[in-house]
Write a protein that binds this DNA or RNA. Structure first.
Lengths: 279, 279
DNA sequence: AGTGCATTTTCACTCAGTGAAAAGTACGAT
DNA sequence: ATCGTACTTTTCACTGAGTGAAAATGCACT
């Protein structure tokens, strides 16, 4: 490859980025607000020469990662979606958790959320909402802050200490939105969450709501996702919800192959592959 | 790059495949049955030198397209899932169609399917199924043949003639499974489907069922997806379902911005972006 | 200690990828 | 019609990013 940023102009900030990463960075330019992009936008956003962007976009399109609209703009393709649906932490947990989410929704008739941690944020894997429920700020596939949401706090509380430190060390950068919590308080908060096996967060912003979240464990015993319900503040005493959410989360954990507590006294024959071959 | 297939051994069949495509072909090795692959499997399946596969897999992992398990195997990452959730023809239609699918499900209590065409097959975008309903063969994110399924026939019937010809010209290759239909009969069948605005397929294989599918149109007026219900053969006269499915499909089409028939006499102010910013 | 298999590092070679520039295309304004 | 602007696509000579064989390392059985 030519001097990506060596000799000529280009941005010295991104000199020798591998081709693969550059191609992926094109995909990363698509967001909720920007679902369709034309070539020059893509090139500009990804900081690539138009000719380079064109070549890559063509390869991506040819393969199906992108699709070209009639107006010349590009959108994320079904082929990519198809493969992404094999993501264990994406559609994977969703598939298994869905029936339980539905039960929880059936019983409460409030928002039910399922999220996993991805880097310094939580990603919303699925959401069930009645059309008449209160508004929620997040969409499926979108990201939510770790420290200020119930699911986020649960995921954070059960994260390996080293990663946790890394996150707590962060200044206020990123999503330091409304309810920014000082690292000190957060540390204490996370301890409480772990203690209680659930997080309860009161919110006033989009509307008056209370979220209750609990951890979901995988076969390995570590927390792989978080389950949450969001109820209008006026509704039931929020804390009454804690056992319900925890129980549902435990049920999902069991479906994922988690063997209850670490008291490995006896074991079932083996939950085996559990191919979730249906859905 | 070195002579991918020029001088030395290697497979002469895939000589100068672009890097991007090769990287993507690694992703393409993941399937329903093979959700976790180790490096050598990936290298073998994608026909790459181990060293090359390693380098690429590292880039993919670094970026989040893949995730490395503790046992060293790789799985599709959440980051990819996240971006794929922006696919208009994937999660996009799903988001908009979901409420209507739910209504249809509520009323019938049978399987409800949503699918789009991708190349020579249909991809199942979403499925609602009661736990007690009859079995279905396909999973969300999976592929189904065009010519032998109700959704497939609908998608095929409304495909641009040139693509249609290309598909009909095919020998028996691909999914030529149980109910292989001769090209001639299929042509007539598709005409009927277009005439009726729906496809009805009777099936005996996994179980005795009847599928009824209808086309969903996008803002441009062309068919972008197909809606279907699958009922046990014993149930209601299948043909009674046709109006129901067609009506649901029309409702979804409207939500997608389709302006009814092509009688472009008057127009609404503009359905605008319809950001489906919720979900 | 020894065998077999997977992962990772090394290294010299070279061709796939690069980007500036120019040509082609589409659309609007004047 | 004629010019202007912005986007897309082609061309081309250059070169360093990517390549893969081979060797080293690591790991799990035996």
């Amino acid at each position: 490859m030519a001097g990506a940023g060596s000799a000529a102009g280009s941005v010295p900030g991104v000199p020798g980025q591998p081709v693969v990463v550059r191609a992926l960075s094109l995909l990363a330019q698509f967001t909720e607000q920007r679902r369709a992009l034309n070539l020059s936008e893509l090139a500009r956003l990804a900081d690539l020469a138009p000719a380079t962007a064109l070549r890559m976009v063509r390869h991506l399109t040819e393969w199906g990662a992108l699709e070209k609209l009639e107006d010349g703009r590009y959108v994320v393709g079904v082929r990519l979606w198809e493969i992404a649906s094999l993501s264990p932490r994406g559609h994977g947990v969703r598939q298994i958790a869905l029936p339980y989410l539905e039960d929880l929704y059936e019983v409460t008739r409030h928002h039910v959320l399922l999220a996993v941690r991805e880097g310094h944020e939580a990603v919303l894997i699925d959401r069930l909402s009645s059309r008449t429920a209160t508004e929620v700020a997040y969409r499926v596939g979108g990201r939510m802050p770790l420290s200020t949401t119930a699911v986020g706090q649960v995921l954070l509380a059960y994260t390996a200490p080293d990663v946790q430190e890394e996150l707590l060390a962060q200044p206020d950068g990123e999503g330091g939105g409304p309810g920014r919590v000082p690292a000190k308080d957060l540390r204490a908060l996370l301890a409480e969450v772990k203690q209680a096996g659930a997080a309860v967060v009161r919110r006033t912003h989009p509307s008056q709501t209370v979220s209750v979240a609990a951890p979901i464990r995988g076969a390995g015993g570590d927390v792989v996702a978080a389950l949450s319900i969001v109820v209008p503040d006026a509704a039931t005493q929020a804390h009454e919800m804690v056992p319900l959410v925890r129980a549902s989360a435990l049920a999902i954990s069991r479906s994922l192959g988690h063997q209850g507590k670490a008291s490995g006294a006896w074991r079932h024959p083996a939950p085996a592959a559990r191919g979730n071959s249906s859905a």
